[in-house]
């Protein structure tokens, strides 16, 4: 359960974590600068368990994993967006940050609404309005990575050199 922090379309990785903050990939450092390219007060207002909600193409731009790490480190329980840019989506899954693809989320969530997220079933409940939103389901392999806690944990128990 957490508060929604709502953004629009095409939020790119330069806004999620500007390049000048990427010479370190320490989570604590990245957390302080999360979303600094669009809102420098974000990390102060964001509380552990809050949720990032956005429009289409969230995380477009550079491949910097620092973006997904910053949101995880600042305490995001999940990112719910109308669509995700491919590399951000991969990065989030690979570090174990749940990403939920809900094509109409901005029609149903306003800033500061209270959301409860069921990652397992891909359900987002807006407890401020009682709206229930269902995310597109994840492929089994991707679920397996998330359930393992990320790609590293998956690799440690399932990795092998020929596929």
């Amino acid at each position: 359960m957490g508060r929604a922090h709502v953004f629009g379309d095409d939020i790119d990785t330069d806004q999620i974590i500007p390049a000048q903050h990427t010479t370190s990939s320490e989570p604590d450092h990245l957390a302080t600068h999360a979303m600094a390219g669009i809102d420098t007060s974000f990390s102060d207002r964001f509380e552990e368990g809050d949720i990032v909600v956005a429009g289409t193409n969230f995380g477009c731009g550079s491949s910097r994993e620092h973006a997904a790490i910053a949101l995880q480190a600042v305490g995001a329980e999940a990112v719910v967006a109308e669509s995700f840019a491919r590399i951000f989506y991969r990065n989030a899954i690979n570090i174990g940050l749940p990403v939920l693809h809900v094509p109409t989320v901005l029609d149903h969530v306003d800033a500061d609404d209270e959301l409860s997220i069921d990652v397992e079933d891909g359900v987002v409940t807006n407890t401020s309005t009682d709206d229930i939103l269902v995310a597109e389901s994840l492929p089994p392999f991707v679920r397996h990575i998330l359930d393992s806690g990320g790609l590293i944990e998956y690799g440690r128990s399932n990795g092998h050199r020929s596929q």
Binding site: S63, E65, I87, N91, N94, I152, H160, R161, S162
Partner: peptide, 30 residues
Amino acid sequence: DSHSCTHGALGAYATGVGSTDLAFAMAFGW
């Protein structure tokens, strides 16, 4: 790097990934 798609100019399946993906690819080759 997100612009790894550049190498598709030669007809390779070239794609950009993040750092954890790169680590996994370097470790396991897939």
